[in-house]
Structures are given as structure tokens and as C-alpha cells.
Design a protein around this nucleic acid. Structure first.
Length: 454
RNA sequence: GGCCCGGUAGCAAAGCGGCUAUGCAGAGGACUGCAAAUCCUUCCAGGCCGGUUCGACUCCGGCCCGGGCCUCCA
């Protein structure tokens, strides 16, 4: 089945036809690095990682760019608070981000550009916009001239009048039109800044993505993705910048946006204090559990992130890894058609997960590993799941745990076996209950006793 | 106010104009020294009101409810 994706531009599912079938180009908006990212930031990373894996299976060459924003006023404020340099702060948090995303099973993008390395490209792009009559300088700022673009607002489906009517922010006096947005702004001596034709300053938020995507993927490319909240203003303004600068009818052919994450039914927000960083969650749950939960709803739907959801994802992975326990050297298998079909329909991960359940059921019904187990592993691989050794999975332990060591568990199991052999079931049950109280669950099988951490 | 999403069984979450979605939980049974894991059987849906249709959870209209965005939040 050929790939169909929901394109925010048309608000419809469309067949995916790359601009250049020999080279598919994908851009995903990455984080602003000033602290650990929260779980909401992880959703696009995981979801579009599934897309990246799918594209790599089907096209000879895929370039995936995910930027790191290391210029931002929030960064400057945090660096001052921490009394550390901007470089130290962004380097440290970017490293943590890479590590956390990797633990969620996300492949590294092909290119991870940092905005500070592209300031020259940004300035060149802004100059080009000024030359073409789409931008103007005013009081040290450079602003994009929104009325200069005929169909501004197409992505977010907003008319110019609606924008002005809905504006919640006081309009700066140097703007020719209230909808105009900043491309470049002046910096004080105390603020980070770069020399430019308009004096020392720093870039506005949107220009970096236009500069980096055009430098790395070209003036037009296939897919641009990110969170729903980026549709306006960020992506709308990227489109305005890139199309006006380069004169193309499109910037990206397909725009894909993931839905929001709620925390136990409530909107995640810093004022409610109900957000989790990926970093802290990874101390409590395996990255794979978090990843499966993030994929358990279709990416455009809202997703409620709850302790129950994490427990269910854990239980599912326990069952799946159980099915792979004695798989041995698995024969190489391709991703089963049922999984490819599900993912081809706008990344229908819940349907892919249902297909994995069917495969796991088959493994158990057959009473052991076989072709179904190889299919299960290959199919789960399309979602970035089930690739580690099953025993390692069952032995995972939270960072703060102080339970018995693997060796202690093995010793207790041996003692229990001896008691069982002597028909001393009172003692054998005592040992089992004792381990259970410490979070270790025993399973007696035909090949002896196996165990897992609950 | 404008734009855009949703409302499916106890919970999570999909497809589909007629055929058991799926998983967890619940009930009964098998296996087990007892458990756990697993297997078998099973209960439980489609916000409300109209319309189209031989037939609607699925299409159309209205209503109710919930959510998001509307200048730097994925």
C-alpha cells in the first residue's frame, strides 16, 4: 500500500509523491535548548521517527533534518540565572536532549543543525527579502511585510483581517502592518548578538528554520513536520519567508502536525505544574514504555499521558517480549504487510499495534517461537520497538531502585528449587512471596524458572 | 468572535454502509503442588435528534458537550 499522509495545507489525506523519488527530504522542528525537554516535546520526535523509518524502507535516500534552536531569549535569561555561558547551557541541554531521545528509541536525524551556525544564512535570507520588497528595516528591527504576500495565512486558514482582529498583543509602533513579524531585532551590549547590515542584533524566531531548511534540503522539500501549535505563527511565517525569498509556490509539499499531550486529562502547563521531563520519566520507566504509550494513539489525536497508560504499555511490552523470549537467533524477516499497511495510512500506529498483538497471539498459540515471532520482531521494529534482548528487558530496573541484584535473585531461585524438590512448599512459597514483595515475579515453566522485575 | 479538532464498551484505542477490531480489566474453564505466565470460552459500545439507505457506529444536517490555536508553547 502506498503512503498516504494528512496534509495540513489541504486538510486532507493525500498520496505521498516525493518531489524527487531518489531523495526524500524531511524537516522536523526541534527544541529550544535551555532545560530538559518535557514529554510533550517527545511526541513529534517519536512519531516522526516512525515516519523516517518508513521512508527509509521505501526510498533509496532520505535526509532528515531536525534543528536545535540555540538562540532565544529564554536561553539568554536562563544562562544569566544559572550564571553560566550561553554556550555551556545550550551544549549541556542539547547533549541531554540527544541522549533522552535516543533512549526513547529515536534514530538520530541525518543532520542536526544549530541555529547559531546559520546566522550568516539568516542574514542573507533577510537581505534577499528586503531586496525583493517583502521586508523592511525600522528602528533596528527588520520586519516581514505581510501584505506583500498575496496568500499569507493559507496554512492556518486565517485572513489578514482575522489576524488583526484576533491579535492579543500590543502592536509595536514600528510595524507598518499589525500582522508584520520580526525577522531581526536589535541586541543591547549585554545581550547575545551578531553584526548585521542593520546593526548588532539577533534573529527572530521563524527565520532560522527557513535558513536551515533551504541550506540543507533546498528551497523546496517534501515534508515539514512539528506540533500542532506551530501551525501558527511559526510555520505560517516560515512559509512566508521561504516562498517570498525564493519565489516558489510551496516551501514544503506536505505539512504534518502532531496533536497535543494531556497529563491525566488536563492540559499540560507549567503553571499547573503537571509536566514531566523526559529525563525524569526515564528514571522510572524504560524508554520503550514511554515510546509505546506515545504511539498508542494516532499522532493527530490528543493523547492523555497517565500512570495507567504507562502501566498498560509496560504490560503490553511484557507480553510481547515474553513471546520473543526463546526466539534465539531470529531469522531475518521483513516488516509484515499488515504493519506496512497500517503505517501507510497516515501512520496509523494503533492499527499497527493491533497487528502486533495478533502476531504475539500467534506466537503463544503455536506454543513457541517460529515465523510469527520473527514477524513480530520485524513488525515492532517498524515502530522502533522490541529490538533489545528479552532477558535484558525483563531485568530492567528503575534508576532509584534498591531491590535484589540479579545474582541474589538467582540464588533465591536455586534455594526455592531445592525446597520444591524436597516438597517443602511452605519454604518455596515463602521465597517466592519474599521476591514478589521486592518486585520480582517468578514463572515456573517446563524449562525451569524464569523471572522478571514487575 | 474567527479558524480547527474530538465525543466508540469499565479503561485505552482503531477500521468500516451490512462480516468478532485490538489490548487491558471483569466472569467461567484448562494447565500448575499452589501461583505466575499461557491457552480456551464469555459479558460489555458508538453524545442527542432528524435525514439518506433494503440496511448507519460508519454518509448528510441540526443540537449538546469537550478540547486546541488566534505573534515566539511540541
Amino acid at each position: 500500500m502506498s503512503l498516504v499522509v494528512y496534509n495540513t495545507l489541504s486538510r486532507e489525506k493525500e498520496p505521498f509523491v516525493p518531489l524527487d523519488p531518489s531523495h526524500v527530504r524531511l524537516y522536523v522542528c526541534g527544541p529550544t535548548v535551555y532545560d530538559y525537554v518535557h514529554i510533550g516535546n517527545a511526541r513529534p520526535v517519536v512519531v516522526f521517527d516512525v515516519l523516517y523509518r518508513l521512508l527509509k524502507r521505501r526510498y533509496p535516500r532520505v535526509t532528515y533534518v531536525r534543528n536545535i534552536t540555540d538562540i532565544d531569549d529564554k536561553i539568554m535569561v536562563r544562562a544569566a540565572e544559572n550564571q553560566e555561558s550561553i554556550d555551556a547551557l545550550t551544549e549541556r541541554t542539547a547533549a541531554a536532549y540527544r541522549s533522552d531521545m535516543s533512549r526513547l528509541g529515536a534514530l538520530s536525524p541525518d543532520v542536526e543543525p544549530r541555529a547559531t551556525k546559520y546566522v550568516g544564512e539568516m542574514i542573507a535570507l533577510i537581505e534577499r527579502l528586503v531586496e525583493r520588497g517583502h521586508a523592511y528595516a525600522a528602528e533596528g528591527h527588520v520586519l516581514f511585510d505581510v501584505p506583500s504576500m498575496e496568500d499569507y495565512g493559507r496554512l492556518s486558514r486565517r485572513s489578514h483581517d482575522e489576524l488583526i482582529a484576533g491579535a492579543r498583543v500590543e502592536v509595536a509602533p514600528y510595524k507598518k502592518d499589525p500582522a508584520d513579524f520580526v525577522l531581526w531585532k536589535p541586541s543591547t551590549d549585554a545581550q547575545a548578538g551578531w553584526q548585521s547590515p542593520w546593526g548588532r542584533g539577533r534573529p527572530g524566531w521563524h527565520i532560522e528554520c527557513s535558513a536551515m531548511s533551504s541550506a540543507l534540503l533546498g528551497e523546496t522539500f517534501d515534508i515539514h513536520a512539528g506540533g500542532l501549535d506551530l501551525i501558527f505563527p511559526h510555520h505560517e511565517n516560515e512559509i512566508a519567508q521561504s516562498r517570498s525569498a525564493f519565489g516558489h509556490a510551496i516551501m514544503a509539499k506536505y505539512w504534518m502536525h502532531n496533536g497535543f499531550l494531556n497529563i491525566s486529562g488536563e492540559k499540560m502547563s507549567k503553571s499547573l505544574g503537571n509536566f514531566f521531563t523526559v529525563h525524569e520519566l526515564l528514571d522510572q520507566y524504560p524508554g520503550e514504555v514511554i515510546r509505546l504509550l506515545l504511539l498508542s494513539a494516532q499522532y493527530r489525536q490528543p493523547l492523555d499521558f497517565t500512570p495507567e497508560g504507562l502501566a498498560q504499555a509496560k504490560a503490553t511490552l511484557d507480553r510481547w517480549y515474553g513471546a520473543l523470549r526463546d526466539i534465539g537467533k531470529s531469522p531475518a524477516a521483513v516488516v509484515p504487510q499488515s504493519i506496512e499497511d497500517a503505517l501507510s495510512d497516515d501512520l496509523n500506529t494503533p492499527m499497527a499495534i493491533a497487528a502486533l498483538h495478533q502476531l504475539a497471539n500467534q506466537v503463544y498459540q503455536q506454543g513457541g517461537p517460529g515465523l510469527a515471532a520473527a514477524d513480530l520482531k520485524a513488525g515492532a521494529g517498524a515502530l522502533g520497538l522490541l529490538q533489545q534482548d528479552p532477558e535484558a528487558w525483563f531485568r530492567w530496573t528503575p534508576a532509584a531502585a534498591d531491590g535484589p541484584s540479579d545474582a541474589e535473585i538467582e540464588a533465591a531461585i536455586a534455594a526455592r528449587q531445592a525446597a520444591r524438590k524436597a516438597k517443602d512448599f511452605k519454604e518455596s512459597d515463602r521465597i517466592r512471596d519474599d521476591l514478589r514483595a521486592k518486585g520480582v515475579i517468578l514463572e515456573d515453566g517446563p524449562k525451569g524458572t524464569s523471572w522478571k522485575r514487575g
